[in-house]
Design a protein around this nucleic acid. Structure first.
Lengths: 138, 138
DNA sequence: GACAGGTGTAACAAGCAATGTTACAAAGGA
DNA sequence: TCCTTTGTAACATTGCTTGTTACACCTGTC
């Protein structure tokens, strides 16, 4: 969803867009969008102004934003949630597997982010526009 | 959790282990384990026998099982769940972004699996054993 | 300075998926 | 036949994400 919002912002290049407008596009509630925007603000991906004539816009060119940044901004929790429940201490495996797995998963997540880095917001917008043309053509 | 179970099975190399025993190790319910084992059976990673003297064991050497296989066996759903709610058709972005994003995510997931492939169950078990030694030494 | 439109934020309801629990039929060796 | 364990269904519980309402606060416009 975060990607959706950012793509819309890229589409409106530079113009400020209100959360109500974005919500309509994603078909959801303005509050959801605002919560999302807070995370994106923290990651310095968008800038938002309050008061009259307010709204959000990208804080830099869409060519300089890649999906890995978006992923990190939004996904503050692990993609592999540890069960939070302590494993059985009597089990010889249970005690130590947690740390080992964390290392493996961290590496896997890094690989995932490296792949996401290859896609910029500008590139994504281009592809979306193209596939829209195709859809209309049919 | 699936990895935890498989690691225990690798640890008991070849011996059949009951779901009750595995459940105790993971600190959960036997039924949860059995549900998990069904998925692992479908992926041909474990074999289970019913009746007396029953239980599960790895269907091949732990050196020939990597975490990508486990991931695929367990994670039948997408790691990036599409919102299922249709986006607003009036939005120029909403209509076409879905397909484009799916392609990007598929690529990212592939990268993730490629990284997981590098870790075999045997290698994982080795690391767990080592870190256990360390923990005991302290 | 008052007003209007929008954001930040809290509190709570609703939906959904994962997990836990109980119960029971079926398999299969002793 | 008996006993242990699996496969499976049905339902409760839990936690998380999303949705909803409400309200204080900010800030350009008049």
């Amino acid at each position: 969803m975060a990607v959706h919002v950012l793509t819309v912002l890229a589409y409106k290049e530079g113009d400020r867009v209100t959360s109500a407008c974005l919500a309509e596009s994603v078909n959801t509630n303005p509050v959801i969008i605002r919560r999302l925007l807070l995370a994106l603000q923290r990651a310095k991906l968008v800038e938002t102004r309050k008061g009259a004539d307010s709204g959000s816009r990208l804080s830099c060119s869409p060519a300089r934003i890649n999906l890995a940044q978006v992923y990190r901004a939004v996904e503050e929790s692990e993609p592999f949630p540890s069960p939070a429940k302590k494993p059985n201490a009597a089990c010889p495996v249970g005690n130590c597997i947690r740390d080992t797995l964390n290392a493996v998963f961290a590496s896997a997540e890094l690989a995932l982010e490296r792949d996401l880095e290859k896609t910029t917001l500008a590139g994504l917008l281009e592809k979306v526009k193209n596939s829209c043309q195709h859809a209309k053509g049919r």
